[in-house]
Design a protein around this nucleic acid. Structure first.
Lengths: 245, 245
DNA sequence: GTCTATAGTGCGATAGAC
DNA sequence: GTCTATCGCACTATAGAC
């Protein structure tokens, strides 16, 4: 599958996973440090251990039947923590929701911009961005699914953040397409609509995960498919250069 | 926009709207007739009028903040009907949810198969199906958005139906792609993944409707874009024949 | 730092008047 | 056919024991 000679830095899923270090624990440690004033528990090891438990259980229950449908009693009994203990980590159910959402957005931005090389040629940028986006949402699938489905339960401010975040990714694709068109690599397609289409195809990976799991499609396979699907639609004829797959 | 000479029956949105007759009232009349045993109200004009009100209000409130978050008291005060009156039309909140979901599925199946011509060439089938799907979801956007977002609040049986319905559309696209490949119209792409991609792009129209409204993209424009985007990716080189846009 | 017990709220659903 | 009044319940959130 990998003809790694032609395109130098076509990142693969395994190396991404090692690099990213996005373990649940890492994430929860960061959340704890950011929110340590509103969290009543002061010992980091204890707090992080419980936060891992709380978030993990929340994502599991919510992604099954919705955040609103999950009662804090459900969360309490599934996590093994009492109602009182739960309220040491957040001050309301809505705050719990917002903590998860906020963290997801922060990580997305961080990871995407970490892996973007502004000097790379557009086509390489596009490949990298598609792969990184897919790999990230693969590693953190429950997080992204949650963020996607629970947007409308957010307050006004957080909801606006969520929309901004959606448009942020799209704008990156839009810019890459524009740059590619200027350089004659891409055809004269509608950049904004195309960027939206790419976003939709990326989202399908974590929103319809059940479908791809059932069909045993790996994230690498989907990445290869998407890249070839999208490039067929946007590459200028002279720069068309199909790869193996 | 319409160069109607080359492809004979490229259906446009306006003619679809007239043909479809999918007014809220029509739909509610059908729902009433199907469920007249479980609905306590017996006079059709009264029942239909109130059903229109109930469904319309439910979709509005639910699509704003989720079906579960909408209490029946919200529904009661927003619709102007009392709690007691509401319960003359459904026997539980869950039944209300299922009525709406079921009707959406029925209409989708009906409209799609009505407009499919099994003898048409694959490329025409593809165009028609994309257009009809977009037009239908345009006319009934709140319905489709609702069905999409509230799937996980359904019971096991209804949920299974919902998944079947998702795969039903995809299979149609899959079949068209296969047929086209056999006839040499389409390239040798992965049909299942491509069908899934097409579905995702169609869903984006009603799921992210806010985005397209904001950007003032009409359904005709999106249809033209999608068809050209998808055909770039799947058409065999010899049959490539770009149209105007 | 975590527990149990409970206060207070708002829900879905129903019975009976009109 | 629709309304008002009300029941019982499950929820979020908190207070105080350990």
């Amino acid at each position: 599958m990998g003809t790694a000679q032609k395109r130098p830095r076509e990142i693969c899923f395994d190396s991404f996973k090692q690099m990213a270090l996005l373990s649940m624990e890492e994430i929860c440690r960061e959340i704890f440090r950011e929110n340590h004033q509103s969290i009543k528990i002061k010992k980091e090891p204890v707090a992080v251990k419980n936060l891992v438990n709380i978030f993990y259980t929340t994502l599991r229950l919510s992604n099954e039947k919705g955040f609103h449908t999950m009662s804090l009693r459900d969360l309490s009994s599934a996590s093994g923590l009492s109602m009182g203990a739960l309220y040491s980590y957040f001050s309301s159910k809505d705050e719990l929701l917002e903590m998860i959402q906020k963290q997801g957005r922060t990580i997305t931005r961080k990871v995407l911009s970490e892996h973007m090389d502004p000097d790379a040629p557009p086509r390489e940028k596009m490949h990298t961005l598609i792969r990184i986006h897919l790999y990230l949402t693969e590693v953190m699938q429950p997080w992204f699914y949650f963020a996607y489905m629970e947007t409308k339960n957010l307050g006004k401010v957080q909801r606006k953040r969520s929309i901004e975040s959606e448009l942020f990714t799209e704008r990156i694709f839009n810019d890459i397409l524009r740059e590619g068109q200027e350089q004659g690599v891409y055809r004269n397609v509608n950049c904004l609509l195309t960027a939206g289409a790419i976003k939709a195809l990326l989202q399908d990976w974590y929103v319809k995960r059940w479908k791809y799991s059932r069909r045993q499609i790996s994230v690498e396979e989907y990445a290869a498919f998407l890249i070839s699907f999208i490039e067929s639609a946007v590459l200028a004829e002279n720069s068309f250069d199909p790869e193996g797959g």
